[in-house]
């Protein structure tokens, strides 16, 4: 079982030690952080760079449905879309004037994963078998996380047993905001232990943590506890992923690898709807952690409507015009 990185074993020895460690992290100047994120947002990504970014973004999507109204049919439809996001591109043989013919290998990639509630994990696993698309399941009484540890762990076990390759847990924000950092840490450890080979994404619900200092502290708790990914938000509150909070988390994983050698992924989720947004996040990755994180194994987008916008932009790059919403699939 993965444990705390040795370099920081003292930090988690007690509640007070963990508090001292977290409060010893450098502060975050909100104005400066947001200015840096905004400045990277002015990068102009054109032509070949845009084509690269669009395909990379598609391959990084955790295509998500987390609704009370979810049904097996909805999940199967989403899974089909994840595996083959752009069926119309494959259908008729392409015209010889199609610019993409110059690069015949550049097929639309599949998404990274499909993200569902635990009771839909088995349906998703069956639909995605052999496709290379992972099954991600939220767990731990998502999104509020207001349940006993036993219930949360049962939720995780359930999802793993149903075939989830990845578990998206929520931290106990109540414990965090009341200063019980060790409780947050130990809960992540416990969940990680239930994951087996599944990769664990730890959701902080940054909108509820409210300050950037808190987001940095939560990032370190997650990383120390063995998270495979740190993730901004559930998509269920008013403020979700922003360029600034994602930049801050990228700085955290960058610093953690520099100090421990352990690489951890980052997943912004919620509110990323356009190609333009997604490209800005990829620029943040490129210029903060560098290309080692430009890979679906290390960076994800928690999104649903983003995919169709990426597909429309992808078609625009190859045909020179916007084909409109009837040329991408609804799901």
């Amino acid at each position: 079982m993965p444990t705390t990185a040795p370099a920081f074993s003292d930090a988690t020895a007690s509640d007070s030690a963990l508090r001292r460690f977290l409060f010893g992290l450098p502060g975050v100047d909100a104005v400066g952080l947001e200015a840096r994120a905004a400045s990277l947002g002015t990068r102009s990504i054109k032509t070949t760079a845009k084509a690269y970014a669009i395909d990379l973004a598609i391959s990084m999507i955790d295509l998500t449905t987390l609704e009370g109204a979810d049904t097996p049919g909805k999940v199967r439809a989403l899974a089909a879309k994840a595996v083959n996001p752009d069926p119309l591109r494959y259908a008729p043989p392409r015209l010889s004037s199609d610019p993409l013919d110059a690069e015949p290998d550049r097929m639309t990639p599949h998404t990274a994963a499909v993200c569902v509630y635990p009771d839909m994990a088995a349906t998703a696993a069956a639909a995605l078998a052999g496709s290379g698309v992972k099954v991600a399941s939220v767990a731990t009484a998502f999104p509020a996380g207001r349940a006993s540890l036993d219930v949360k762990l049962a939720d995780v076990r359930d999802a793993v047993a149903a075939g989830a390759d990845e578990i998206d847990m929520v931290i106990d924000r109540g414990a965090f905001l009341s200063g019980r950092f060790l409780k947050v840490y130990e809960e992540i450890l416990a969940v990680k232990a239930e994951c087996g080979t599944a990769r664990l994404k730890v959701i902080f619900e940054t909108g509820e943590l409210s300050t950037y200092d808190n987001i940095r502290r939560a990032s370190w708790i997650g990383m120390l506890a063995g998270a495979d990914f740190i993730k901004t938000s559930t998509g269920k509150v008013a403020t979700n992923a922003t360029p600034a909070n994602t930049l801050l988390m990228l700085e955290a994983v960058r610093d953690f690898r520099a100090q421990t050698g352990v690489q951890i992924g980052v997943k912004p989720a919620g509110g990323i709807r356009t190609t333009k947004d997604a490209v800005k996040f990829l620029v943040l990755v490129n210029e903060t952690t560098g290309e080692d994180w430009l890979d679906p194994h290390w960076f994800r987008f928690g999104a649903s409507s983003l995919l169709n916008d990426l597909l429309m932009q992808r078609q625009k790059l190859s045909t020179g015009r916007y084909s409109g919403p009837d040329y991408v699939t609804v799901d």
Binding site: R43, S44, I45, K46, T47, T48, A49, K50, Y52, A53, D55, L56, S59, P109, L282, V283, N286, E291, L294, D295, P296, H297
Partner: peptide, 13 residues
């Protein structure tokens, strides 16, 4: 993965 090439920004004059 197949897209391991670096994210090279194309000229944007």
């Amino acid at each position: 993965m197949t897209m391991a090439s670096a994210f090279e920004y194309a000229p944007a004059p």
